[in-house]
């Protein structure tokens, strides 16, 4: 076969451009405009699909309570009745909200500290049991988390930290073994150059001073990411919270409280209340998130790559 008849032979760049123009039959600009229009249409469609449930949620929260369980997208009667009910003494919502806020506050501080300590040590120190320890934690992580639920419940019950006193119990459990989730922060620490540590050590700093004065200031983005995710998690924490606080409305967090409004018996009375509760819970979390979005993106990307 002669070489110049081979259709798969390499073309020179100029030939390629020529061929491209012939094939397309129109200018690059027109093509781009068309493809961009399609992209915009798809993006708008996607946005609608993603936003719609929340718009519905807000609409239904503004439905006047008396209509109860409703499936109208647009309320028949608008009003703030649901919100008024939510903050009234009749509903225990204030209490749940406060509980959740306390849990979120304490567990985000505690979890962040635990994870930073663990991550710093595993990233910076080389000691005999380091690898075995990391492997051990990896293996532990493969056990389903709430396998241990009954025993923790019983222990907390013995300590008097269940039902109405569930809040400190939940904080304790959420902080205690959080050190095992050190991966993202360690990934970040690994990228901070070790020569910084060494320079400080040569200057006579102790290891503790290196940590507090050199490393911590550099890790602001990842610390904010950890605080943010740890603060957001309790707002949706349902499984363990419902088990520990079972039977005492005083100890519920928002997730457990709102969930029991959607049980078959409660649904006809509380559906719209659930919607308004959902809105009230989401607002602070979303605000916080939008303010710190930059750090969240950094954390998500970093966590996936360095894992």
């Amino acid at each position: 076969m002669a070489n110049n008849e081979n259709p798969n032979r390499d073309l020179t760049p100029m030939e390629n451009l020529e061929r491209g123009k012939e094939k397309r039959g129109m200018g690059i600009k027109t093509r781009r405009r068309i493809s961009n229009t399609i992209a915009y249409v798809v993006l708008i469609l996607i946005s609608i699909i993603w936003i719609a449930p929340f718009v519905f949620l807000i609409f239904q929260s503004l439905e006047v309570s008396s209509t109860g369980w409703s499936a109208h997208v647009i309320p028949k009667a608008w009003g703030f009745d649901n919100y008024i009910y939510l903050f009234s003494a009749e509903a225990n919502f204030n209490r749940w909200y406060f509980n959740t806020f306390v849990i979120a506050l304490f567990s985000c501080i505690g979890q962040t500290l635990m994870q930073i300590m663990m991550a710093y040590v595993l990233s910076r120190f080389r000691f005999k049991l380091r690898k075995p320890l990391m492997n051990f934690m990896l293996i532990l992580g493969m056990f389903p988390g709430f396998l241990t639920m009954i025993i923790l419940y019983n222990v907390l019950k013995d300590l008097g930290l269940t039902q109405a006193n569930a809040v400190p119990g939940l904080i304790l459990v959420s902080i205690a073994s959080s050190g095992m989730g050190y991966y993202v922060i360690k990934g970040f620490f690994d990228t901070v150059s070790k020569s910084l540590d060494e320079a400080a050590l040569i200057d006579g700093a102790t290891r503790g001073q290196v940590f507090v004065k050199v490393i911590l200031p550099l890790t602001k983005p990842i610390v904010i990411y950890t605080i943010l995710t740890a603060f957001m998690a309790p707002w949706g924490d349902f499984i363990f919270a419902s088990y520990i606080a079972f039977g005492s409305s005083q100890g519920y967090n928002v997730a457990v409280g709102l969930y029991q409004w959607l049980t078959v018996e409660q649904l006809p009375y509380h559906y719209t209340h659930f919607c308004s509760g959902g809105v009230v819970v989401s607002v602070p979390v979303i605000t916080l998130f939008l303010m710190l979005q930059r750090y969240y993106v950094e954390g998500v990307t970093g966590g996936a790559v360095k894992g």
Binding site: G236, A255, L258
Partner: peptide, 18 residues
């Protein structure tokens, strides 16, 4: 941001509602 809103809203709200 529009897409990420769904991550922010606690799952028990969005999923139960859906």
């Amino acid at each position: 941001t529009i897409l990420v809103l769904t991550v922010t809203i606690p799952q028990f709200i969005s999923l139960l509602y859906i």
